[in-house]
């Protein structure tokens, strides 16, 4: 019962956050007049579509213009362009929520659509796949590295892991990506410079999969390099604290086999705090992913963000800001659930 309550409270906080970010974004857009520009462009676009349609039926140019003018004023009222921006806030929030943000300026989806939602939804799976792969790899490797370092605290291995973690904390993912491109693509020539498919893409499904893997190796490696250190450091600190706990000494005294002790008395109790700390690291992983995609021209949302910024595509920037917040919040919630499952102390 109270388990549900704990999670519900978390959910409410996170939804509040999402809503808060939305409000902030929309307020800024309204106050700076950007939302007016977006809506005006939207109206113009619809008018163009309608003009084509109407020009088939209405032959008289004067009448056509009049009909269009009527339609335009209708649209302006409908979008609230005749009212001050703050009266349109709820409407604007709703539009962002359902990604009804019209068309992008220049960027199009791979299938040619310039609808914001089409463009983004097409790239979403790529980003999710990239981030989850990288997080899965770095968590597995990082926890193993960190735990080993903690058990050998003070050793040369431990110092090496600590140094690596410190460096990776200060390592910008995009620069790491550039270095990998320089090393593996430019000098060694064993991985492609970017993208996700060769041109032309291979035909058989197996070759296609191999091609994608080949292209995704460096982006994944980049992200892993950058996140790995954090996982290792957090795991090391927590495992080190756990090994100093009285219950580990007790377990050792009562003669538990070392691997059992490791599993049950060190890794298992260390899991919940590791998860809590990872919650805070998620933001970094998402940020890292945005920039990594940019560097590798990876067809995901992060690269799209970069393209939207460099081509001043407001609609896309807004939609992506919202969607990244959404992804972040969703992943945090998943981790919260994981934490509750792992730690009996919060379950009562």
């Amino acid at each position: 019962m109270s388990l549900v309550r704990v999670l519900a409270l978390k959910a409410v906080t996170l939804i509040l956050v999402l809503f808060g970010v939305l409000m902030l974004v929309v307020l800024v857009l309204g106050a700076t007049g950007v939302s007016d520009r977006i809506l005006t462009a939207y109206v113009g676009e619809q008018l163009r579509a309608v003009r084509q349609e109407l020009s088939q039926r209405i032959r008289d140019p004067v009448e056509l213009e009049r009909a269009l003018e009527t339609y335009r004023s209708e649209l302006i009222t409908a979008y609230g362009l005749d009212r001050p921006w703050y009266t349109r806030l709820p409407q604007m929030i709703l539009r962002v929520l359902i990604l009804d943000l019209g068309s992008s300026r220049t960027v199009t989806s791979f299938s040619g659509s310039s609808k914001v939602s089409d463009i983004i939804l097409e790239r979403l799976p790529n980003t999710v796949a990239l981030v989850t792969t990288a997080v899965a790899i770095s968590s597995a490797v990082g926890i193993a590295l960190g735990a080993r370092a903690a058990l050998k605290a003070g050793s040369r291995y431990d110092r090496a892991v600590s140094l690596f973690s410190s460096v990776s904390f200060a390592l910008p993912s995009w620069w790491m990506g550039l270095i990998y491109i320089l090393a593996f693509s430019f000098y060694l020539g064993i991985f492609p410079f970017g993208g996700l498919y060769s041109t032309p893409p291979p035909t058989t499904p197996l070759e296609r999969a191999a091609d994608i893997l080949w292209h995704a190796t460096l982006p994944v490696l980049t992200l892993v390099t950058v996140i790995l250190g954090g996982w290792a450091y957090i795991s090391r600190t927590i495992v080190l604290n756990v090994t100093r706990e009285d219950f580990v000494a007790v377990a050792r005294a009562k003669g538990l086999k070392e691997n059992l002790l490791m599993r049950r008395y060190i890794i298992r109790p260390a899991a919940p705090p590791i998860v809590t700390n990872i919650v805070f690291a998620i933001s970094g992983s998402i940020g890292g992913a945005i920039l990594t995609e940019t560097v590798f021209n990876f067809p995901g949302m992060g690269r799209l963000y970069y393209e939207a910024i460099t081509s001043f595509d407001e609609n896309l920037v807004i939609a992506l800001t919202y969607l990244y917040t959404l992804i972040y919040i969703a992943s945090r919630f998943i981790l919260e659930i994981l934490y509750v499952v792992l730690d009996p102390r919060v379950r009562i």
Partner: peptide, 24 residues
């Protein structure tokens, strides 16, 4: 470990409050 530990000699550690693994 096989003959003496805990079978013949056991111990109640100081600070029982932290002597149990919190997740088991």
């Amino acid at each position: 470990d096989q003959e003496i530990r805990w079978r013949k000699i056991s111990m109640v550690f100081q600070g029982a409050l932290n002597s149990f693994n919190p997740v088991l």
